[in-house]
């Protein structure tokens, strides 16, 4: 009996031994776990095969945010449609915007394609620039460094562990980047079409040139007029392929492919987007392999 009592008393303590870190997307969870190692638990909210712009704010997420010791999000308004009400409902000062246990990764990356004119007649624009920055492997290193500093700032006790983990992660990542660079070297200048420009950073990293998107404007479904224009563009410019995300229907792309013979390549945007993409390394292995 006494033992049970003791166990019950100790149970919360064992829970506190690990910091619970809620993160919005799987890739953030992977980096955080690499740096935090055994001292943290990561709780990933969105699934990797969902459209990151349209995550359903399930009530179960409120519990996850409520019980978190820290929150790391992508930012750049990617979570604007779903994360604010969860934070609001969770009643957890640790996950409030502005708390020292709250991290917005987009503040540490220079976003590209920042629109000079923010107006919804241009579609669902991201006023701060393109927020899909993690698809440039160079940025993964910046994010890992950011998360290392963040973890140290909230858990100084294990600073040397986080430092070592970062150094190991950084070294092995740089090694892998060399491999991807070699694989992609011959692809420089290759023209591609996308559904939504979510590979902007990947393209920039490897010198691919995006010449058009199947959606006429960000977030606006394809129209027949725009499809015809895209077909003409493909016939004229002869891009290699349509790089397609996993969450939009490929129906329109298939139609365009039928008319032009262009190849469609499914490009996962995050861990779990396709079954074989299980971690950060396999994500970039897949992406760099897919365009071969």
């Amino acid at each position: 009996m006494k033992n049970i009592f003791l166990l019950l008393l100790l149970l919360p303590l064992t829970l506190f031994a690990h910091m619970n870190i809620a993160v919005s997307y799987p890739y953030i969870g992977a980096i955080t776990k690499s740096i935090g190692g055994e001292h943290i638990n990561t709780v990933v909210l969105a699934k990797g095969n969902w459209d990151p712009h349209f995550v359903v704010p399930r009530p179960s997420f409120i519990s996850k945010v409520r019980n978190a010791d820290a929150l790391i999000m992508n930012g750049g308004q990617l979570e604007i449609g779903w994360l604010p009400p969860l934070i609001n409902r969770a009643g957890n000062p640790k996950t409030n915007v502005g708390a020292n246990t709250f991290l917005n990764l987009s503040h540490y990356i220079k976003l590209i394609d920042k629109p000079s004119n923010v107006d919804r007649s241009g579609g669902d624009v991201h006023p701060d620039g393109n927020p899909h920055f993690h698809l440039d492997p160079n940025n993964i290193l910046v994010l890992a460094k950011t998360i290392e500093k963040f973890l140290i700032s909230i858990d100084r006790e294990h600073a040397n562990v986080y430092q070592t983990n970062y150094e190991n992660f950084s070294a092995s990542w740089q090694e892998k980047m060399k491999g991807w660079q070699e694989k992609m070297a011959s692809k420089k200048g290759m023209k591609v079409i996308q559904f939504h420009n979510n590979l902007a950073y990947f393209n920039k990293a490897y010198g691919l040139e995006n010449i058009g998107t199947i959606e006429p404007l960000p977030g606006i479904p394809p129209s027949s007029r725009h499809i015809i224009k895209t077909i003409e563009l493909i016939k004229d410019q002869k891009p290699c392929c349509i790089l397609h995300d996993v969450y939009h229907s490929t129906k329109t792309a298939e139609f365009i492919s039928d008319k032009t013979g262009i190849k469609i390549i499914l490009m996962p945007h995050d861990i779990g987007a396709l079954e074989t993409v299980e971690d950060l390394t396999s994500l970039f292995d897949y992406l760099t392999g897919a365009v071969q």
Binding site: P59, I62, S63, N67
Partner: peptide, 12 residues
Amino acid sequence: IQWAAPTDTYLM
């Protein structure tokens, strides 16, 4: 006043 319980399952 609303209170979300510290459980894995959402309970408010």
